[in-house]
Nucleic acid binder design. Sequence first.
DNA 1: AAATAACGTGTCAAAAAGACACAATAATTA
DNA 2: TAATTATTGTGTCTTTTTGACACGTTATTT
Lengths: 232, 232
Amino acid sequence: MTQYEHTTRLLVATDCIIFGFDGEELKLLLIKRNFEPQKGKWSLMGGFVNDDEDLVHGAERILYDLTGLTNIYVEQLGTFGEVNRDPVERTISVMFFALININDHDEDAVKAHNAHWMSLKHKPKLIFDHDKMVEKALEHLRYKAALHPLGFELLPEKFSIPQLQKLYEAIYDRGLDRRNFSRKILSTKLLIDTGEKHEQSATKKAILYKLDKVRYADKFHSFWHFMPDPVM
Amino acid sequence: MTQYEHTTRLLVATDCIIFGFDGEELKLLLIKRNFEPQKGKWSLMGGFVNDDEDLVHGAERILYDLTGLTNIYVEQLGTFGEVNRDPVERTISVMFFALININDHDEDAVKAHNAHWMSLKHKPKLIFDHDKMVEKALEHLRYKAALHPLGFELLPEKFSIPQLQKLYEAIYDRGLDRRNFSRKILSTKLLIDTGEKHEQSATKKAILYKLDKVRYADKFHSFWHFMPDPVM
DNA sequence: AAATAACGTGTCAAAAAGACACAATAATTA
DNA sequence: TAATTATTGTGTCTTTTTGACACGTTATTT
């Protein structure tokens, strides 16, 4: 086949906005660059798309490289392509949004990349337009978590309702009524009582649940309203 | 500045999924290609991104070129980048989702591009992965229109509630209860009574409303539930 | 053993949603 | 010209969901 002629070809990168939750705060996995350009500055983890690689595979490669994880929650978030977003050379960046259980990642791989979990609230300034990417990802998380049960992706396999509530409170940076939250979550019938208790609890031990994976997959796109008034 | 070396550069295109509504059916603006590749086949309107052009400007250029319209509702829908999606040469395509009032477009410009409004229900097969793009755009429309008042973008400036209901029924391909729908729409307080009546109505003439643009812009991202059970 | 902190569940009133009925308007028809 | 018919606007009633709030339970701490 002939090639398209007289047409500009551009660099295409993927950047991954990786969220984690440590039980208290929402965190981002960021790298302190020990390579040029912008060596020493903070940025998202990214890389160029290989010639023979689908976009999502590029993102998954980068995520595996950094965290040692496969099968994590990944979504394409859109593409940033402003002419001067990368001062070195024009680069189109396809953003990927990832949610991981912060306890599962490979610490050695993270260290090898000079990566760190940073609290969203004390996030450093990032290079290029990466701050805007994080802003967009956070908006997306807030939007989607209000309607769909994707918050579970940030929790361990077994978790309590108070843990889930703390996650939601971290995502939206606001308090929630314990009793109404619990009722809402239980009404989804997504939770299976494991019979175990959360041993780390300070006083009364909370029930540990696990996700009903079948129902979760089945009803993921249903409109649930996990937040009282998620007007944005 | 130095350039990134040893890195593949790719073709970057934008493709526009353009929806319109004629009062009865949801329609797509498609072109019958009189150029290679795939001459004679149907496709979405698209083009390559210029070197000095932001992505959304590329899309707006293409949309203006085809319809003569500016200031239309445009959203980026994500990017398709499978290795072999374009058999000629690897091309990344950034999709843009556009809603226009079907009466406003420039018919000569549309004809010049060999473009046609096609009913979604009788859509021909499109080239490359354009069918998947349309599928994604339709999902997005159904998702977003269930929660946010973007349906108005498809209607004339002055419209009646029955017209709006017909639009929603076309989008979701299902009937709705007139009385509950009307109540829901009026409760948003997005509509301003123009004092005029819809003269095309067969019998009793419906009230013509216009959008409260200020409130629309203000409350666009609020979660309204325009569809009874939009489980997807 | 009492105090404390966190958890689970229940109640009640207000708001929203779903099902349905009736009156008003304007074209069509007898 | 009056009755018929199609379409539109608005209202009612019941059920469901939401938001605000209280109480008893469990396990640790004092």
